[in-house]
Design a protein around this nucleic acid. Structure first.
Length: 466
RNA sequence: GGCGCCAUAGCCAAGUGGUAAGGCAUGGGUCUGCAAAACCCUGAUCCCCAGUUCAAAUCUGGGUGGCGCCUCCA
């Protein structure tokens, strides 16, 4: 598999540190609100990476943190007259609700910053001892000039960064580019005891600490949105590599931004959507499909149109799955025809093309197109009056396998049989036999209002949930 | 000012040297009690200019347009 590495700005063959195992870390949400549609992109895309790596047989250890202490969490707590941990707890729970809807699997570990204060303090202490950090009035800062490789991820020399930087007025910093590892507690703020007095961790340090604790000093893949590249990831590298004296991550992956109607999402423009809002309008499945339909490194535009198209496209895949499930039970008995055998033999080539696409820096858009070609293939054969159960089963197996890697398409459980529906379908069949089409249509309409779509086929009545 | 990304049919979106995947939408057809689904047919010389090459959407240079980071916003 090839991965585009921000560090080298090249697509590189992926070689894990330890054969067959992958250690990956992805920056998670700051839990002070529902996560927005832009946040969903890295969550979905790196969940996809993890699923694909597992599909290819890797044992993946995936860590995604929750930033549960920072200015925004504290502000929200103050607004609601509650404590930061209550806010964090609530939105962590909401994160899992949305994540589950989007079929984002829980990470191997979801550590919280506040559960790792000891580890954080330990790293900061090491950095101070080694001369990479200094204390000033209860704050501790990283001395960027001490790390000569600073800027290697964003590919900018320190001087250029400095030239563009807004000057931070904190006078006790040695250099404007220095960043906080530990912040002295302000009055009425939550704090932890540390060698530098009461305070709390800076934002960047938590990721270095949690990555080391749960994955080790050097990890395979670190991922996140492009905007985190600088300064967040640059700072993580500085902290981790100075503290551990080893490379931090071999591969850095960054997803491009999601725009809303071709503009950056922002509260002031009034185009700020949470996943919860979007799911209410189009459903979680459409959002996931929409994200996966584009390569993760190209900017993606969220619009009403895009989501409606995603919904329609997904319906085609779901229809094929429902059809295959139906025919694997209601098809004809016996051996596959020659045409069916040939088609079945071609399934491997679809699978290969699917994997080739995914191997090419997670080209999910191309992988999806392979699924659609497969849909056409099986649909064509399934349109035959004497399609065999055997063939339908084979088709269902390959379709399900590929769809499961991307976590798209309705699963069988999501379209389970229901005896009441069966009864109504039977009644309708009786009516049709008696040429009472009025009654037949009435039953079909009635079921439709309940979201059940009936289709008459040569093999019998097929139904699915809208 | 520094660094970087994007520009492909009505829309979404792959494709990084050999004359353009896939999806949505549109129109026509087949099938069907009707319907739905499905299948077949239907559409682009790839922002512009110049260059390299037998050959470029794909490489180089120059434009134009849109966007991002350099401000703890994914």
């Amino acid at each position: 598999m090839k991965i585009y590495n921000t560090l080298t700005r090249k697509k590189e063959e992926f070689v894990p540190i330890e054969e067959g195992r992958v250690k990956m870390y992805s920056c998670g949400p700051t839990v002070y609100n529902y996560f927005h549609i832009g946040n969903a992109r890295p969550f979905i895309m790196f969940d996809l990476l993890r699923r694909y790596l597992e599909y290819r047989g890797y044992d993946v250890r995936f860590v995604q943190n929750f930033t549960d202490i920072d200015d925004k969490v504290i502000r929200k707590a103050n607004e609601e007259n509650t404590t930061y941990d209550k806010i964090a707890e609530r939105y962590i729970s909401e994160y899992f609700t949305d994540a589950q809807g989007l079929k984002i699997r829980p990470a191997t570990v979801h550590p919280k910053a506040t559960d790792n204060i000891d580890e954080i303090i330990d790293i900061v202490k090491t950095l101070v001892d080694k001369g990479y950090a200094y204390e000033a009035d209860g704050d501790v800062y990283f001395r960027t000039k001490a790390f000569k490789e600073y800027g290697k991820l964003s590919h900018q020399p320190l001087e250029d960064l400095e030239a563009g930087a807004r000057i931070d007025v904190r006078e006790h910093k040695e250099d404007p580019m220095d960043f906080a590892l530990w912040k002295a507690a302000k009055p009425d703020e939550p704090y932890w005891e540390s060698p530098w007095g009461k305070g709390r961790p800076g934002w960047h340090i938590e990721c270095s600490a949690m990555a080391r604790r749960y994955l080790g000093e050097t990890i395979d893949i670190h991922s996140g949105g492009v905007d985190l590249c600088f300064p967040h990831h640059e700072n993580e590298i500085a902290q981790s590599e100075c503290a551990n004296g080893k490379p931090f991550a071999h591969y850095w992956m960054h997803n491009a931004f999601l725009n809303i109607d071709n503009q950056k999402m922002s509260k002031s423009l009034g185009n700020f959507f949470t996943v919860r809002d979007a799911a209410g309008a189009y459903g979680y499945e459409a959002i996931r499909f929409f994200m996966i339909s584009a390569h993760y490194r190209t900017p993606l535009n969220y619009s009403r149109d895009s989501l409606e198209q995603a919904l329609a496209s997904l319906a085609r895949i779901n229809a094929a799955l429902v059809n295959l499930r139906f025919l694997s039970k209601n098809g004809t008995d016996g051996e596959m025809s020659r045409k069916e055998k040939e088609s079945k033999d071609a399934f491997e080539s679809y699978k290969k093309r699917f994997c080739d696409a995914m191997d090419d820096d997670l080209n999910s858009a191309d992988a999806v197109s392979v699924i659609f070609e497969l849909v056409r293939e099986v649909n064509t054969l399934c349109a035959e009056k004497d399609v065999t159960r055997k063939y339908a089963k084979e088709g269902l197996a390959i379709m399900t396998e590929l769809c499961n890697v991307l976590a798209i398409g309705q699963t069988e459980e999501e379209n389970m049989l229901d005896s009441e529906i069966d009864t109504l379908i039977e009644q309708r069949q009786q009516a049709r036999k008696a040429k009472d089409f009025k009654e037949a249509d009435r039953i079909r309409d009635e079921l439709k209002t309940q979201g059940i779509i009936l289709e008459d086929t040569p093999q019998g009545v097929k139904w699915s949930r809208a």
